[in-house]
Design a protein around this nucleic acid. Structure first.
Lengths: 237, 237
DNA sequence: GGATCAAATATCCTATAGGATTGGCGGACC
DNA sequence: GGTCCGCCAATCCTATAGGATATTTGATCC
């Protein structure tokens, strides 16, 4: 297991530090020692999602190596994985760069895909979702959306829970991979769209709690269509 | 640009060799120099798909490095990308291994996904596919399926063309990533199922040639459902 | 004879050094 | 003033060495 120490990432050389129950639950999947590469992967992905690494920005391997205090090898492995997931691109003998911001065509394609898959996942989730996950869903309901980042995290969790609730890992993984790009795109404009979206979320949640598959499907479809409409306005081209 | 030389992969140090027109056209997208990592990636992926590396098999880094005549770094990058695509898995301090063969649950999930996406792609392909690609589609029609591998390649090309014909890169990429696993699964059993599948392919092709979206969608759905039925029989569990 | 423990091996993981290539910058030339 | 050419810096790519760990093998004990 590896832990970041004052900004740096260092090999694990000691006891596992105590961890609160909630932390242990949240980091359950990270708990298995997976090496520096995965740790670096998460770090860079987080920097991309937080726009600390804006779209279309050069990413130097040895700069990262110095900054994180690790060798180049795990950086390369992490960047290779990020490249396979479409978050960075590599040009031979030139280096890595974060993916450029989505253009209109890509946004269209992404929402066509979401519109195809997510309503189906919502319908299945209404039938198959475990009662405990439904409870978790209530937790991300729209009681209050404190900040932009707060809503973004809530939105991510909302869609992740429903995608997983469908019981199909392939669908959940595909949607998670895509949602990252939605997150980045939305963050680029800091739009304050929490109000409507939260209401739409609640409609989906209500349908799932009522175990009404058809209602969940149509509510999710409506939510994605409106979300698409809100985001589309930011692109003129 | 990098070229394999008698089994080994070596850095490019000379003129680009002459290449026939068809080769140049086929390798157009490979023509840009992308480094050893990508070359190694293709090589390993090909070995996995050809079952030269069977499922659930250990893959040693420095064995590969010696075999291919390159350093460990590009091997690691290639394996990281393969891991991100789900073709190998890494266990800390234990090494890489090819993904185990799909079990029943994974097969179900995969075909649920295909059934959700591919008929939609076929419908769009019937509307939007370029005439030249429709012509390419005829080329992979069922004139003759010489061998098992011949049919496998034809099937891969068939589904790839239709997925791309829909015009959505995300859909095409997702399906391509999944189809690799279908290919591996089918190869594990060397089933002689070419006859029926080729007939079903032709039905889809006919519908697309007629620009009949609804017919293409239902024909593709039928094809995938039957394909699922044929493959499901191989799993008893 | 079976089980347990310890050493040895093979492998991975990390770090550092050296070679190769691209892109940008400045000066010279037309 | 515009264009072309050569140099320099930054970066990537490769190779090798050393430390750490999991697995396997063998011997010893019960």
């Amino acid at each position: 297991m590896l832990y970041p120490v004052n900004g740096k990432i260092q090999p694990f050389c000691g006891k596992v530090p105590v961890m609160s129950a909630v932390e242990a639950a949240a980091d359950r999947q990270i708990a298995r020692p997976s090496g520096l590469a995965e740790e670096v992967y998460r770090r860079i992905r987080a920097d991309i999602m937080s726009l600390k690494l804006p779209p279309d920005t050069r990413v130097s391997v040895d700069s990262l190596a110095r900054e994180l205090g690790v060798s180049q090898t795990p950086i390369r492995e992490a960047l290779s994985m990020l490249e396979a997931n479409g978050l960075v691109s590599k040009k031979h003998f030139t280096g890595y760069a974060t993916a450029p911001r989505m253009d209109r065509a890509q946004l269209d394609e992404l929402f066509e895909f979401r519109l195809l898959v997510e309503p189906h996942a919502a319908r299945k989730a209404a039938d198959a979702m475990a009662e405990s996950d439904v409870e978790s869903l209530r937790a991300v309901s729209g009681d209050k959306a404190p900040s932009h980042d707060g809503f973004a995290d809530m939105d991510t969790e909302f869609h992740k829970l429903i995608a997983q609730g469908g019981g199909n890992h392939l669908i959940a993984d595909s949607l998670a991979r895509l949602h990252i790009h939605v997150h980045i795109f939305r963050s680029c404009f800091r739009s304050e769209i929490a109000e409507e979206a939260v209401h739409e979320h609640d409609e989906v949640i209500a349908a799932i709690r009522a175990r009404d598959g058809a209602a969940a499907e149509s509510a999710m479809r409506r939510h994605i269509e409106r979300s698409y409409g809100r985001l589309r306005d930011f692109i003129k081209e």
